[in-house]
């Protein structure tokens, strides 16, 4: 059996809302330590991988490792029907591995709403990329910045054009774009430390200058999720997709892998 409970408006609900513009269906792997979710956007530009550790929930139970496909958009629609203060339970029993049961319980426990959501096939949403994020050394540059700043950069640039060029070297981290109506260049002078301060831009890893061109539509999606957290970590390499990561509690994470634009 798999069962978790959370309060309405918890971080899981926030994340599911924020990934909706990219993801319809996701594959979820559950274990006693927590659950991971992988999803690929329909255009194959972004791969999303997240791990929610069990300790971020009010209660969490998973008797046996299991894997299920979930229609995220439908699930979010159901979760939106909950009321303030409700306790939300998500449950899958071994007897019925076709549905996921979602229950809302009102704070005074006088009202309970049960809903069943059918599980779907999401095997195509797996990608064997788990090794990427274990290879920090493969990224040419990794920096951290306040997620609100990251969102602001993406928004400011998207006024001018659809693409952003992110350049990183020892001295400067820049976000720039050039369009028909003009150009924008936002430069940050980074701190260099292993312990990034929450309010500053920090270069944590640097093996050489690197620049990547990315579609701002996808970057804005990453930024949307990141604003649920204080800081965002961004890894660049010419040989790997861009990585955007936020930490969920001690051991959890949400990572976006974004394919860059390339010159053909």
């Amino acid at each position: 059996m798999f069962e978790l409970t959370m309060a309405k408006g918890s971080i899981l609900q926030g994340v599911l809302e924020a990934i909706l513009d990219l993801v319809n269906v996701a594959n979820v792997d559950c274990s006693s330590k927590g659950f991971s979710l992988q999803a690929l956007d329909t255009e194959h530009v972004v791969f999303l991988s997240l791990f929610f550790p069990s300790e971020v929930f009010r209660s969490y139970r998973c008797d046996e490792d299991c894997s299920m496909g979930i229609a995220i958009a439908d699930m979010v629609d159901l979760l939106r029907a909950s009321n303030d203060g409700d306790i939300i339970t998500i449950k899958v029993t071994d007897q019925n591995f076709e549905d996921i049961t979602i229950t809302f319980e009102s704070p005074d426990k006088t009202k309970t709403t049960d809903m069943d959501l059918q599980l779907v096939d999401a095997r195509s949403h797996r990608l064997k990329i788990s090794e990427w994020h274990d290879m920090e050394s493969e990224y040419q540059a990794i920096f951290c910045m306040p997620s609100a700043q990251f969102m602001l950069n993406c928004k400011s640039l998207s006024v001018i054009d659809d693409d952003v060029v992110i350049r990183v070297n020892e001295e400067v981290i820049s976000f720039s774009t050039k369009g028909k109506s003009g150009c924008v260049n936002i430069s940050h002078v980074p701190n260099k430390t292993d312990n990034p301060e929450k309010a500053s831009v920090t270069l944590t890893h640097m093996r050489g200058p690197v620049s990547l061109t990315l579609n701002l539509r996808y970057m804005k999606s990453c930024a949307k999720v990141s604003t649920l957290f204080d800081q965002v970590k961004i890894g660049l390499s010419t040989k790997l997709p861009l990585m955007v990561e936020c930490k969920i509690a001690e051991k959890g994470y949400i990572r976006y892998f974004v394919a860059p634009k390339i010159t053909e």
Binding site: L40, F47, L127, K239, A259, K261, I262, E264
Partner: peptide, 14 residues
Amino acid sequence: NKHQADLEKFYNNR
């Protein structure tokens, strides 16, 4: 002239 890379192809071409 930049074109959007496909994530799977990008990964396979590493």
